[in-house]
Nucleic acid binder design. Structure first.
Lengths: 139, 139
DNA sequence: GTTAGTGCAAATGATTTGCAAACAG
DNA sequence: CTGTTTGCAAATCATTTGCACTAAC
């Protein structure tokens, strides 16, 4: 029987030109972007990568925890390189997309405790704060 | 010029059979459901309502604050009648969909203050806690 | 009667999938 | 070589929109 060391960990991806380009793009620019936006970025930088590949790669990176994924209010999924392994949430400008990472121990604990109080297990949560950053505010 | 009284308030909807059916369905069953699910419910109850109308009505109700809308993890938007006018969030069972309303003043204030501290205005937020309710927990 | 509301079918837009060709190990 | 990865095109899926039609007021 083929019992090598195969846990629930990923089967290691191959090193391809496009994967490198995607990783680099994510490492270079800081903000969140959708798969399509990242794809445009790459094409603009003369990296020929298929949109499909961008989707597949981002999904894989997201699952492995290498990138943060969140859903924008319009429903598009956006990604960004995860700087910290620490759990955090985002404050996002509704207009320009400027993003700030926010976190608060107390809030984390509250969600956890509240869920447990109601008999829930294996709890995860998602907090998103939207607003207009001062650059985008009317005056 | 046609300058009647037109504020930012809604132009009052007309009372139609389908709107009534939708409102009733929302009032009767308690949980969250997607537009498509609600549509099925209605057809099952012999109410002939077009899917388009369900979408349009739910959207209107959501904007007027009569129903709560939230996005499921899979991206579908789900709605439910808003019992309280008080701002609250949801604790949702990942497996069976059982939902509990949760709220916490302190958390509300934290999101507000944090956003303002970063120069954001017109702040809204969205908190969702997912987990397995005890009925769905492994043991 | 007018206008808002309805519903079908077609359009949209993000994401996924089938499948053959290209490539890493 | 041999299994992955890629990428195009076509398929999905939720939601929206065009437009002719019907019902409210």
């Amino acid at each position: 029987m083929t019992t090598h060391q195969e846990g629930s960990s990923s089967p290691r991806p191959k090193a391809t030109r496009q994967r490198a380009a995607i990783a680099q793009a994510l490492a270079t620019a800081p903000g969140f972007r959708s798969a399509q936006e990242l794809h445009d970025e790459l094409r603009a930088a003369d990296h020929k990568v298929g949109l499909t590949t961008v989707y597949r790669t981002l999904q894989a990176l997201s699952e492995s925890g290498a990138v943060d994924a969140m859903r924008r209010e319009d429903g598009e999924t956006i990604y960004r390189r995860c700087d910290t392994q620490i759990h955090h949430h985002h404050l996002v400008c509704r207009s320009c997309g400027y993003t700030v990472e926010i976190e608060n121990e107390a809030v984390e604990r509250w969600t956890q405790r509240t869920a447990e109080k109601h008999g829930f297990e294996d709890v995860t949560h998602d907090i998103q704060v939207f607003g207009l950053c001062d650059a985008c505010s009317p005056e």
